[in-house]
Amino acid sequence: MQRVNMIMAESPGLITICLLGYLLSAECTVFLDHENANKILNRPKRYNSGKLEEFVQGNLERECMEEKCSFEEAREVFENTERTTEFWKQYVDGDQCESNPCLNGGSCKDDINSYECWCPFGFEGKNCELDVTCNIKNGRCEQFCKNSADNKVVCSCTEGYRLAENQKSCEPAVPFPCGRVSVSQTSKLTRAETVFPDVDYVNSTEAETILDNITQSTQSFNDFTRVVGGEDAKPGQFPWQVVLNGKVDAFCGGSIVNEKWIVTAAHCVETGVKITVVAGEHNIEETEHTEQKRNVIRIIPHHNYNAAINKYNHDIALLELDEPLVLNSYVTPICIADKEYTNIFLKFGSGYVSGWGRVFHKGRSALVLQYLRVPLVDRATCLRSTKFTIYNNMFCAGFHEGGRDSCQGDSGGPHVTEVEGTSFLTGIISWGEECAMKGKYGIYTKVSRYVNWIKEKTKLT
């Protein structure tokens, strides 16, 4: 034993070699072989497995989906700052455009905790909710729209109204504003409101030439003092309507412009014939205590009207009353817009006519005020429907199939267009061939041609 100890002390290297040989010859039971080890760690190889990531292109799944990435790591994937920024906006807080917040056709661009709407022409605001041009839906104005110097929408209202708090709607500024039905039992019968379409306001006024200088022999019209197929109006439903009495009662109609003036057809009036105007009328054979009678003290036909040349060209006249009318729910003026808007309103496509005229061709006159909704007829169809001249200051309205029309005794009465609950004068009943005849239409004086003249002559002093 002493000898062994001496050998170990003198030859430590020998001992180490012996131990190493023993270990190498022993069977290893701690580690699995290569094949079995792979069965336990069965993990798919990654895209760049075996390579240094710093030297390969980034992978979106590896960089940002398996674990949260930084902007720089995302930049490695896209290799483009702009594309990385677009991805980053949604990656950080989701897609803010998912709810489609942009209105009126706006395009949404996502941002971090926010979004941006790219608005089409005519709109602005956070969600493109603000109209900035009158060309689109009248700028959301209830009545009139004008573009300011910086191309912003400025709404306005006709006389007797003021802008509401929203700067879009119009509200009454006087007790009985024009064009409004205020009798409670008839307010439910107000005709369907007309909503502004998209309009090209630059070209809204037709490029028409008034044929002022045409000389033409007097034409022989049949029954051209021209509501057939209409309905009984309720008291106060058309408070701007008046009836004219002269040699015979209810020979023509008219509309209240203001307390002192009536507008009617020029062919209705004769110099030297006494005319009485009755406002607030409903049943011409009954006294309903809503009527107001006034005498006409002055007749002003349009300066281009000449019955000797043509009885229905420039067929418009103004009547001055001896005493002002007292405005109330049964006696209310009709609204008159400017030339541009009167023309736009007419193009809405349908209007209402009213009167006490004959209820059928050569038949009896109506006792109760009649009204009828009539569609506008395109000019080409209008011209083809008659052998008589249709001037540019006239328009056609009615039904091709016949059966409904204005008729004798309705002449001078109103053709009105309702705009968001307020009625505007767009025409004056003038003439036609018979009444409600198939293929024939009622012919009306186009008020847009005469609004400046009306307003100039009827100013209240």
Rank of each mutant, 00 (worst) to 15 (best):
W240Q: 00
N222W: 07
I136Q: 12
T389E: 11
I344L: 15
V202I: 13
E124F: 04
R180V: 04
V416D: 01
V269P: 03
E98F: 10
I428N: 00
H361I: 12
T342W: 01
G427T: 01
G280E: 01
G125I: 01
L327H: 03
H289W: 11
R358W: 06
K146S: 07
T342E: 04
D200G: 13
L60A: 14
S217G: 05
Y91F: 09
S187C: 06
G58C: 05
G106D: 00
T287W: 12
F424H: 01
I344S: 14
V248M: 07
C335N: 00
G160R: 02
V353L: 05
I15P: 04
E259Q: 07
Y22N: 04
G230A: 15
P175D: 05
T158K: 02
R75H: 14
D131Q: 09
T29C: 10
P120R: 05
E76I: 15
A37I: 11
E72H: 10
F71H: 06
S184C: 05
Y441C: 03
R384I: 07
A397V: 06
M394N: 13
S217V: 14
K387M: 08
C145N: 01
A337V: 03
L14S: 04
S114G: 15
F71V: 15
G253W: 09
G363F: 07
G50Q: 13
C134T: 03
T417L: 01
T386I: 09
S25E: 05
R358F: 07
N306E: 05
L130D: 11
E61P: 10
Q216S: 14
N313F: 08
T458I: 06
D232A: 14
F395Y: 03
N104R: 03
I428C: 01
P239L: 01
W240K: 01
G50T: 15
A337K: 00
T271P: 12
L19C: 08
Y91D: 07
E434G: 08
I40G: 15
V326D: 12
E159Y: 07
D410H: 15
E320L: 04
G357C: 11
G179S: 02
D95T: 11
R62F: 09
D249E: 12
E281P: 08
Q2R: 15
V202P: 14
N258W: 00
N147Q: 13
G280L: 02
N166C: 02
H34I: 10
G58T: 15
F424N: 01
G432V: 07
F123T: 05
K440I: 03
L41H: 13
Y91M: 13
A192L: 13
Q57A: 11
G21V: 15
T422D: 01
N138R: 08
C268S: 01
D212P: 07
A9V: 08
C119A: 00
W431G: 10
N310V: 03
F87R: 15
N48A: 14
K39R: 12
V195R: 12
R140W: 11
N151H: 12
V326Q: 14
V199T: 12
V263Q: 01
E53M: 08
L319N: 01
L103S: 07
Q370D: 03
C119W: 00
I275R: 02
Y91Q: 15
V447M: 07
G230E: 12
H302C: 02
V359L: 12
L346T: 07
G94A: 12
K89L: 07
E35C: 04
L346N: 03
S423N: 15
Y312C: 04
L460V: 04
